[in-house]
Design a protein around this nucleic acid. Structure first.
Lengths: 130, 130
DNA sequence: CTAAGTGCAAATCATTTGCAACCAG
DNA sequence: CTGGTTGCAAATGATTTGCACTTAG
């Protein structure tokens, strides 16, 4: 991993800092601009593309039509907050037994899964609850 | 539900016949063309839009970037076959207890969920298994 | 120098929307 | 007639790609 790729490194750094869990290309682009690094969507796009290929990041397809990128790591699922739009991580609720049961029932072969709950994140829930 | 909307009725009919479980706009458009009904994407789009609004159809966001439409009915999740691309229904594995546990752990409020497994559907698995 | 990395502009893809022509009631 | 439907074309929104220009090594 040569240190040449400025954008690549900058994006990796953003993901690592974890100021936010899942980033859209927009989020990343904006954060880079914030940090004084003027750049282009295509560059950010290619950086995330390589990060994913290198196994450092994961791409999550949210149901609002925009992809999010997060640091690769332990598997977990997500909660899409319908109020603030954030995609927050939640522990995975699908265990091997469930997959096995589904394989048996469906006759298919099941690998990955992508689970997106929709609701309110902790912060927004507290705002609403009151 | 007036009988005026030709496309609307034609699309509803396709969904009802269940020749396929989940249809992309492309699928529907192509099937209509097959059936001799020349039409436009926008019309198919508006038909599905209304079917969903009328509660007759459900829109499912697959992770290949295209939305699928299916007959509204009992809740279930899906398996995206990575070989044939089909989105087949599988029973839901997330029960109330799981949701409740997640709410407790995350501090959020959880409503719906969208689960897409990826793997092979029965047919493709059999082709591969051998 | 030399290829990898960038920025800008243009191309895709999958919808969505504006509008004028159409058609069932 | 008349308003709900359609088809066609153009607009969107989010990527993706083509290319010439930079720049680190």
């Amino acid at each position: 991993m040569a240190r040449k790729a400025r954008i690549y490194a900058a994006v990796a750094d953003l993901l690592q800092r974890g100021q936010r869990h899942a980033w859209t290309l927009d989020d990343l682009h904006a954060a880079l601009a914030q940090g004084g690094r003027r750049t282009d969507f295509s560059s950010v796009f290619r950086a995330t593309e390589r990060l994913v290929a290198d196994g450092l990041a994961a791409k999550v397809l949210d149901d609002d039509g925009r992809a999010r990128f997060e640091l690769a790591g332990a598997h977990h699922d997500h909660l899409h907050c319908t109020r603030c739009g954030d995609l927050v991580p939640v522990p995975c609720v699908i265990d091997g037994a469930a997959s096995a049961a589904l394989e048996a029932e469906s006759g298919g072969a099941i690998g990955e899964h992508n689970v997106i709950f929709s609701g309110l994140c902790r912060g927004c829930r507290e705002l609403t609850d009151r």
